[in-house]
Design a protein around this nucleic acid. Structure first.
Lengths: 207, 207, 207, 207
DNA sequence: GATGAATGAGTGTTCATTCAT
DNA sequence: CATGAATGAACACTCATTCAT
C-alpha cells in the first residue's frame, strides 16, 4: 500500500486545478487535459479519483460552497457577542470576501451558474446555496424588523442585491475596487432598511 | 429582383432558431446542426451568413439586447406624459417582461453571461447593456433625488437588485410567479428610496 | 445536392473495408481508424453513415449473410430442373464456396461468432442464419426421406457437419484444399444418409 | 517455509477467475481488473505471474484443454475393459460433458476460438486440441472399420459433427437440453457409420 | 513477494468548418 | 447562392502496464 493518505491531497490539488482552469479557460475551454496538466498529473487520474469530468467539476463547486460557509462561520466565531446588525454585515462581507481573496472564484461562479441551468446536479447545489444565504439573512432581520412579512421581503431584497452587485461587478470589470464599493452599497441598503422598519425606528435618520 | 432582401429574413430566422436551440438544448447542446435544422436550412448557411457558430451566437445576443431596448422605448412612447417615477417603473417592467413573455430568454441570458466571461465580444455587448440600464435609471433618479451622489448610489442599487432578482428567480425556479414577485420588490425598493431621499421627502414616511 | 447517389457506394466501400480489417487485424484489432483508413476515408464518415462502429459491423455481418443467401439462390436459378439431392449439393457448395471465393470471410465469420455471444444484435442475425440453413436442408430431406423424424435428424446432422467442417478447416489451416475436402465429406454424408433412409433404399448401395 | 508452494495455488485461482470473468463479462469486457477482483487479488499480480493479460488468457485456455483431456482419461480409467465403440461414446460424452457441467465454458470456448484466428499462440493450442480429438476418434474407428481411408473419413466427419453440434448449440441457445440432444445425434452418427462400414457389416442394417 | 496508484496511448464519438456541386 | 457530404482535430473515457513502496 504505497503513499498512504495521499488521496485527499491529490483530490484537493485536482479541485484547485479545476478552479484554475475554469478561471483561465472558461467552462467550455476546461477539459480533462487542461485540468490534469495544471495539476501536473496524468489525464487518467481524474476518472480514477472523481469518476469523470463531471465528478471533478461537482467537487469543485462543492468546495466553493463549503469555503463560503466556512468563511461565515469563522467570522461569527471571531467575536464573543454579535448583534443582529453586526451579523448581517458579516454575511455581506463573507459573500464578497470570498471573491476578493481568491480572485479566480469570481468568474468561476458565473460559469457554474450558466452551466447549472442545464445540469440538474449543479442546479441542486446552487439552490442549496441560495436558500442558505436567504435563511442566514432572515435569521438576523427577524431580530431587527418586527413585521415578519417585511423581514422576509428585506431578506429577499438583500439577497438579490448581494447577488446582483456581485454579478455586475464580475461582468463589468472584476477589480477589487468594484467589489469593495459593491459591499459598501449592500451594507448601506441593510442599514436603510433597518432604520426604516426596525424596532426603535422613529422614522427619519440621516445615517 | 426575386431574391433581394431575403438575406436579412434568413439571418433573422437563424437568430431565432439559435435562441430556440439554446432554450431547448442548452448552450453546450446547441450545435450548428441543431440551429440550422430548427431554421429549416442547411448547416453550411451559418458559416455563410455569420462566419461561424460564434457569429450567430453574438448576433443572437445582440438581438436580445435590442429587444430589451426596444421594449423600453415602446413603453415610453405609449404615454404622452411620464413622471420620473413612472419611467422608473417602466424600466423595471421592461427588464422583467422580456423574460415573462419569451420564457426561453431567461435561461438563455444566463448562458450568455457565463460565456461572456471568456468571450471578449460577448463581454463587450454585456457591458454596453449594463451601462444602458444604469444610465436609464440614473436619468430618472436625478429628477427625483437632489443629492447626485445619492442618486448614483440608488441607481446602482436598483440595477443590482433588478439583476439579482432576475438571477435568483431564474436559478431557483423560472416560474412566472417568481418573476412577478421579483418585479414587485424592485418597484418597492424604488419607492422606498424615493420616499427617503426624494425632493419633498420630510424624512419619515410610514408606507 | 452534391454527388447524388454516392451514399450506397461509400457505404459498400466501408462494409468491404470493415471485412478486410477484421480479416487483417481481427475483431479486437479493428477500430474506426483501421476501417476508415482501408476505405481511404476519414474516421468521422463511419458515424456519419452507420451511426457508429457497432453499426458498420452489423452492416458487414448482414452483408455476409446476404451474400450467402444470394449464392444459393443464384445456384438454384442456374438450372431448370433440380432434384432434391442436387439441391442439397448446392446448399453444401454454397456454404463452402462463400469462403473459397472471398477467403477473408472465412476467419471473419468466426470472429463474428465469437463476438455474437455477448452481442445480442449479432446473436440475432446469427440465429436467423442458422435457422435458414437448417430449414433449407430439411426442405430437401423431406423429399428424400419418408420418415419425418429421421429427415429432421439428418438435417440437423448435416447442418452441424457443415459448420463443424468449416470451423475445423478455418481453425486448422484455411487453405483451399481443406475446404474442398470438407465439402466432399459433407456431400458424402448426405449421400450415405439418403442411401440408408431414402425412399427406394434397398439397404446397401456402394455409391 | 510459510509461502512455499503458494504460487501455483494463486495462479490457479487467477485462471479460474479469468474463466469466470469471460463467462460473466465476455471477452471484450474482461480486463485485468475484473479478473484480479474476482480472484481477490491486486491487479499487478497478473503481470507478475503471467507476464500480462495475454499470458493469463493463454493459461486459461491451456487449463480448459487439459480439463478436456483429463475428462476423457478419467472416463477411460473408470472401466477395466472397453470396447472400441464404448470408447467412441466416451469421447463424445467427454466433449459435451465439459460444457454441461461448467456452463460458462461453453461460450468461453467460442470466444477463445474467435480470438485464436489472430493470436498465433492460441491458434497453436487450438490445433493441438483438434488433432487430439481426431486422433482419439481414429484410434477407435480403425478397430471398427477395416478400410483405413474410410476410417479416416469417418473420424473427420465425427470430429466435425461434434464441433458443429457444439457450435450450433452454443450459438442458438446454450441450454442443457440442446447439448444432450446434440450428444445423442453424434452418437447416432457413429452407430450408423459403424453399422455401414464396420467389420461384420453385411451392408444393409435397418437400425 | 505483493500491492494498487499512476500513467498515457488508444478508443469511439462529436462537431465546426470546408468546399465541390 | 445554398447545400450537406466529408473532414479531422478534439473530446471524455478505458485499461494494460509500470513501479515505488
Amino acid at each position: 500500500m504505497p503513499k498512504v493518505g495521499i488521496e485527499p491531497v491529490r483530490k484537493q490539488q485536482l479541485i484547485e486545478a479545476t478552479l484554475k482552469s475554469i478561471e483561465a479557460n472558461g467552462f467550455q475551454g476546461t477539459t480533462i487535459v487542461t485540468i490534469s496538466r495544471l495539476a501536473g498529473m496524468s489525464s487518467g487520474i481524474i476518472s480514477h479519483y472523481f469518476g469523470g469530468k463531471q465528478g471533478v467539476i461537482e467537487a469543485a463547486v462543492r468546495h466553493l460552497l463549503e469555503q463560503l460557509q466556512q468563511g461565515l462561520l469563522s467570522r461569527l466565531n471571531s467575536r464573543a457577542e454579535i448583534t443582529p446588525l453586526e451579523r448581517l454585515m458579516m454575511v455581506v462581507e463573507t459573500n464578497f470576501s470570498g471573491f476578493q481573496q481568491s480572485s479566480p472564484a469570481s468568474s468561476t461562479w458565473l460559469s457554474f451558474w450558466g452551466q447549472a441551468i442545464h445540469d440538474p446536479d449543479l442546479a441542486r447545489l446552487q439552490r442549496v446555496n441560495q436558500r442558505r444565504l436567504e435563511s442566514n439573512l432572515l435569521y438576523s432581520f427577524r431580530r431587527l424588523i418586527p413585521d415578519l412579512a417585511r423581514a422576509r421581503e428585506t431578506a429577499g431584497m438583500t439577497a438579490a442585491m448581494i447577488d446582483g452587485m456581485w454579478l455586475r461587478s464580475t461582468l463589468s470589470a472584476p477589480q477589487d475596487r468594484n467589489f469593495r464599493e459593491a459591499e459598501r452599497l449592500c451594507k448601506e441598503f441593510i442599514h436603510l432598511q433597518v432604520e426604516r422598519f426596525g424596532h426603535q425606528s422613529t422614522g427619519s435618520n440621516n445615517g
